[in-house]
Design a binder for these strands. Structure first.
Lengths: 223, 223
DNA sequence: CAGCCACATTACCGATTGTTCATTCATCGT
DNA sequence: ACGATGAATGAACAATCGGTAATGTGGCTG
């Protein structure tokens, strides 16, 4: 999962990036509204953490622009405590959730997880798909109840596929969301990892759509 | 850090052990009061998670016995929700903190961290020692503000030493608290890790007391 | 001073993980 | 049916990490 952090407070920005990176996200950062707006407009993110008070361009303005341009990724707004007006304005501008400053980093992480889950249309921290079950909170996966021993990259790949259940996900999309930009785009790493996942899962739950990408089917809509 | 879990509910026991192991603790477990009491009496633990309702021997009885025998390790009691009497009885028996069932695992982890910190005489989640700073919450260490890149074992060793600042810690003690019991007791692994820590820290903050063990000094009480 | 003992240091081993490469296999359009 | 393209596979590789073993070093004791 790839996250954009737009925050001008250097220290806070660093903290957020660090925590997110530790949690296994791929993270881009911006320190002013203009840069943030540009990145959010040009790069594909699974979620954005956006401060309201920003130099160059106000956070709400950035958000409005995105929404006008049809960008639909979930946005977590950082607001000053008890600024009710900010909250209302944020809703109007198309924000999905808020955290009031000052906050605990874990609070942000939890909200973010929930946001990404909701954006993928799941209610709880668990995503189920036939015999496959994935817990986004504990980062554990089971198939038919027995735990899978996945490495961190394997888990992140599986997680992304399950968050986009029934959608065809291209290798390009996977690379963009699971690695930072300077990753060798024409390597077959993704294929290798898909193969390893298939082997570990024992059954082939990952469908290949030739020329398009991969897909995990939600139920047993066996074609 | 070595933790004892005494809980008869198989499922809950498993969950706790798993979460604790994931968090980097060395964990022993018992499923009844008798076994729990024996282990807590014979093995050195940094903390105990103790259920109140146990077969063989009630949790409070176990705790009382330990305290009568002079066992001072912090104990986190698992109680039924709203059983005020349990809480009072627990205080009398020498418990250090409570979590009411049902609980979130993270709640237990947080309380446990706090308990271990407090037992070592620290107030916040950060332990500082001259240029060295260690955050038990994020598992990160810095020296003079710059982050140390420590592996998990290195961090756990440093953490244990800092939790016992100004005390001489023997190699035996370190092995007992950082590894499970079937670890080769006469290996020089500890020396090697101390060496690696010293090199990474750039300065020798870990003192060797010949024939005794190691010590981290709190301030600059240079002898 | 000799020699031992405790610790330090260095190199190395084996397991795990992420990645690349070459080869094989499958699928599709013609 | 055939060839070209895309995907799967297995081997191999480098990096990292935990641990082992052999050797080096320095201080204490007899």
């Amino acid at each position: 999962m790839r996250i954009l952090v737009v925050e001008d407070d250097r220290d806070l920005n660093r903290q957020l990036v660090e925590a997110l990176t530790d949690a296994g996200y791929v993270v881009d950062k911006a320190s002013d509204g203009e840069e943030g707006h540009f990145l959010g407009d040009t790069e594909p993110y699974d979620a954005v953490i956006l401060d309201i008070g920003l130099p160059q361009m106000d956070g709400l303005t950035v958000l409005e622009k995105w929404r006008r341009d049809g960008r639909v990724m979930p946005v977590l707004l950082l607001t000053a405590r008890d600024r009710w007006s900010d909250k209302v304005a944020g809703i109007d501008a198309g924000a999905d959730d808020y955290v009031a400053k000052p906050f605990h980093i874990e609070e942000v992480l939890a909200r973010l997880r929930a946001l990404i889950r909701r954006a993928a249309g799941h209610a709880s921290s668990e995503i189920t798909c036939g015999p496959l079950r994935l817990d986004t909170k504990t980062s554990k996966a089971t198939v038919n109840g027995t735990a899978l021993k996945l490495t961190s990259h394997e888990f992140r790949l599986l997680s992304y596929l399950m968050h986009h259940m029934d959608e065809v996900v291209s290798r390009t999309e996977l690379v963009e969301h699971l690695y930072d930009q300077d990753f060798d785009r024409d390597s077959n790493t993704i294929e290798v990892f898909v193969g390893r996942l298939r082997k570990k899962m024992g059954m082939d739950l990952i469908e290949t759509i030739r020329g398009m990408g991969y897909r995990i089917k939600s139920q047993d809509n066996r074609s």
